[in-house]
Nucleic acid binder design. Structure first.
Lengths: 429, 429
DNA sequence: TTGTAGGCGTTATCAA
DNA sequence: TTGATAACGCCTACAA
């Protein structure tokens, strides 16, 4: 039995194109299937016949089929469908082509097109993890890509440099038109990445390249987020806003952690207060993350102060910490938000599923994904024109090299005091 | 001053060679693609020269280059590199091809290959949302695909049937080899999906197709997960295990919710108890989700019982509810886990970031993704040979049509009593 | 304005 | 065993 290699992708009934006329064509068909075709003509026959048959059977009509059906040439079909040179096509042929194409249900073969034009409409996405924020960025990127006719090829490197290198090779083989790299911190282990030559490269929250010629990137702004949170608390009438966070040396000296601290400090000082370190809790640097527990510890620290010095507002560097803070406060009989208002960060599902619901800073990773794609498309379309040889290269409004996503504060119950509470001095615990 | 930003696609190399000659992709690159080439030789010249030049400059060497360098034919190169017909290649040519290939850094052009073989190594992934569990499934799928040399093209349909249809068209255009659809509930709006003909289709947590001939799928097992949780609580010595969940008509009659309730009921009954509806809390069906608040409400209900009838263990249908339950218990001065043990579901980051950490059932969505890919690969290789026409179709060990992922209980502080507590009657609140 | 023809890089067929 | 040679489906100078 000719049970050799499987029938590849083809769906049912596809007698081989040109089976050696003696070898009983279709390999799978048990009995029958007599060599009805050809019989006499054998190989001397012009290929036209076999071709035609074959084409008939192939489910997807080709451009040639359309041309044939419309009574025009392939060129006309191509011109009409790609929309280039619209002036070189008469309205009549245009109509006929369109009609034939829709009638046959023609869809151009992207593989062939890509082979010819050297552009796939694929962009590679390299992510080091799949944590929530990254998933959000991926979602935004994919959505934006989709809207522009691009598709996204996802590669997760699990923080491994080896995997990253392999993924890059892989994506290069796929001939993606561009690449986006997203990571939560900024490891900047630039080794393999910097060698990317397959097209434009946009980074999300990661730096790469020499100081004077860095790669274009999109970054989320944790500093601004923290400022938003603190300013909101102050606007709500809080006068002693505390910080519940992480030691700056912890978590691999995470940039995002440091930025939140700076934002807090700036906002407090800008409002005319000085930073009171008794209102600041840093989790020990050994901790591998901060959550509920650290929130509780923060409250313990704050509660050890004399009552009049205790905070009336808390900014927590993430929603888990905020939940811990709230839990500990409530347990101590302190009301939230009336006595102490609390704001978290990241706007995770914890914030909305908690009770009371937690106000939180949304870093808008999804928007970061969208922006990254926009930037990539811009680079894609301007890649080949502006060699500095020829004076002012592109037109104006070139997007800046590094784009910042503005965070947004989502106000919920945990920080929303009644309106009259705005009077100063109201809710000291 | 040429604004830096672009690192155009071409790596710095490409010395000399006037930039224009044909290649350089980007056909739409505005402006003049002047006929620089011609110069002296004009068009009469045999193309060989131009070709050679062009090839030289082309970054990626082709199979022809390798053949040329090795002094063999393209056929030999193809055979050697694809590994087929190993017997038809002499050891010597084999070596020379390999040597030349590595020396030139040859990488086959997947586009050309796909065009010819009609197989991309791409599989499409249709997801209706990007919530955490889906992201996990995607991660697992992508990882497994990667290990098998496949890549994943992600399409997010945002629950929209229209988008889903478009995405399917898109993926069909891309000629993906197969398709995986992942959703959290089972909407089974099969309209467009059932018409998929581009290759095998595997569903994750979704049913499709006629009852008697459903599509292959992978499902997570919430019933089993609930059983695990309850059995664990019983084994810890709990005698009155409560259920904190959602009205079965709520959330669009979510299958996953109903399964958890059934698992709870089965486990309780199987242990010889009868289900006490006073120990069961169903959130009102109008709620759009369950979280902390519903956990608190559950505890309120339970606390209204006479002390000896109150639960000593609670299974909550997700981690948010569990957190709410724990919070309310602690606030009431009830110890967790000593007085009441609590188990959540989904093993989200809430469970591990909470304090005390929450025991939770992991539904292993990541594994579901992996399994889906395995199943798809199986179908890919067995798709077209076993039409039941010919008796016992394939060989044995065909995977079952629907595969179930076994959940796993992750035990943490919220349910881990001291060993001696195992004695019955210990921790009634 | 339309048609003809050559090539993108592979794989696969068929003589030599 | 190896080497021409023809597709795969599309794009696009160039000639008609």
């Amino acid at each position: 039995m000719g049970k050799h290699h499987l029938r590849s992708v083809d769906p049912p009934a596809t007698p081989e194109s040109h089976p050696a006329p003696g070898s009983a064509g279709a390999p799978e068909a048990a009995g029958g299937n007599a060599p009805v075709r050809s019989s006499a003509t054998s190989k001397l026959d012009r290929p036209s016949r076999a071709k035609e048959e074959e084409r008939q059977r192939s489910r997807r009509p080709t451009g040639r089929d359309v041309a044939h059906a419309a009574g025009v040439s392939q060129t006309a079909v191509s011109f009409v469908l790609t929309g280039v040179h619209p002036e070189k096509i008469s309205e009549q042929t245009r109509k006929r082509v369109l009609e034939a194409a829709t009638r046959l249900g023609y869809r151009p073969n992207r593989l062939a097109r890509s082979l010819r034009t050297r552009r796939t409409s694929a962009i590679g996405l390299l992510s080091s993890t799949m944590e929530t924020v990254v998933a959000q960025a991926i979602s935004g990127l994919q959505e934006a890509a989709w809207e522009s006719g691009y598709h996204v090829i996802l590669c997760n490197t699990h923080q491994s440099a080896t995997l990253e290198r392999q993924a890059l090779d892989f994506l290069a083989d796929l001939q993606v038109d561009g690449l986006v790299v997203v990571s939560t911190s900024t490891p900047s282990d630039n080794q393999a990445l910097a060698a990317w030559t397959q097209g434009p490269l946009v980074l999300i929250n990661r730096t790469l390249g020499p100081e004077d010629a860095p790669f274009p990137r999109v970054i989320t702004d944790y500093r601004e987020g923290a400022r938003l949170a603190v300013e909101h608390l102050l606007a709500q009438g809080c006068q002693r806003v505390a910080f519940a966070g992480m030691d700056l040396e912890g978590l691999g000296r995470s940039e995002a952690v440091r930025q939140r601290w700076e934002g807090y400090r700036q906002a407090v000082q800008q409002a005319g207060y000085s930073v009171d370190m008794r209102l600041v809790y840093f989790a020990p640097r050994e901790r591998t993350g901060v959550g509920w527990r650290e929130g509780v510890e923060a409250v313990e620290k704050f509660r050890s102060l004399p009552p009049e010095q205790q905070p009336d507002g808390v900014y927590a560097i993430n929603d888990f910490v905020a939940a811990g803070v709230i839990g500990a406060l409530l347990q101590a009989g302190i009301r939230v938000p009336q006595d102490v208002s609390v704001v978290g960060n990241d706007n995770t599902s914890v914030a909305s599923h908690h009770y009371p619901q937690i106000s939180s800073v949304d870093q808008r990773w999804q928007e970061a994904g969208r922006m990254a794609l926009r930037k990539l498309l811009y680079l894609l379309s301007h890649a080949y024109e502006s060699l500095p040889a020829d004076g002012a290269p592109p037109s104006g409004e070139e997007p800046s090299l590094v784009e910042v996503v503005r965070p947004q504060l989502v106000v919920r119950q945990s920080s929303l005091r009644r309106v009259e509470v705005n009077a100063p001095g109201a809710g000291t615990s």
